[in-house]
Design a protein around this nucleic acid. Structure first.
Length: 209
DNA sequence: GCCAACGTTGGC
DNA sequence: GCCAACGTTGGC
């Protein structure tokens, strides 16, 4: 969790350049730097086999759980915004493990960030699906973090249910009205406000909508 | 398998 | 720096 105290009401913040801009949402805003500080995350991965250049890209929450120490590196992110969010992650923060591109998409469990961003070695590996010929070892483009399995959700939270809440909250107000999963659909690593995170956790104890 | 949304690339 | 073409994501 962040060492600086946070404000949750602030919607207008000051960028480093000193220009006023609107925060993406009512996320936490740091006292000092003036950029939004996110503390919770959602990370997507595919739990079902799919072959890319002859290589299976399947990696579901069960695969993470099966690794030594239930810990693995989140490699292969090749999108700048997703990468930048990973670079903001701090050790000890929590992230939802989201299952995408599968029969039942949704949130499967919770993991912990156990190592902050470092060079993703797969960008230099010609055999890797996510090899990037344009990235040079003296100036690597892509980063990854290490994540550790924390727990399964008490019940799987399907995208369809989250979407119902999102639509409801968009109409009448509520914590999921701006959730990145819906407003930034293709982003594979996304920030959640603590309000979004806590609300989603509260759904575990509710009946499916 | 379809295709909408959207990020990236590259010509100009 | 614009923007059309292209490629990818990911729900359905």
């Amino acid at each position: 969790m962040p060492s600086t105290s946070t404000r949750r009401q602030a919607a207008v913040i000051l960028s480093a350049a000193g220009r006023k801009r609107k925060a993406a949402n009512t996320a936490e805003v740091s006292e000092s730097a003036g950029s939004p500080v996110f503390t919770c995350w959602l990370m997507k991965s595919e739990p079902e086999s799919r072959f890319e250049n002859g290589i299976d890209v399947k990696f579901g929450i069960e695969d993470l759980k099966a690794l030594p120490n239930q810990t693995g590196c989140w490699d292969g992110v090749r999108n700048y915004q997703a990468r930048n969010f990973m670079r903001q992650m701090k050790e000890g923060q929590q992230a939802f493990f989201y299952h995408s591109n599968c029969k039942e998409p949704g949130i499967a469990g919770v993991m912990t960030i156990v190592k902050e961003a470092y060079v993703d070695h797969t960008q230099f590996d010609k055999k890797d699906v996510h090899y990037d010929a344009s990235s040079k070892p003296d100036n690597p483009k892509w980063s990854m973090v290490d994540v550790q399995f924390q727990r399964m959700m008490k019940r799987f939270l399907p995208l369809s249910e989250l979407k119902k809440y999102h639509l409801q909250h968009r109409a009448n107000g509520g914590p999921l009205k701006d959730m990145a999963l819906f407003t930034r659909a293709r982003l594979s690593v996304q920030p959640l406000t603590s309000e979004e995170f806590d609300f989603i956790l509260s759904l575990e104890d509710k009946e499916p909508l």
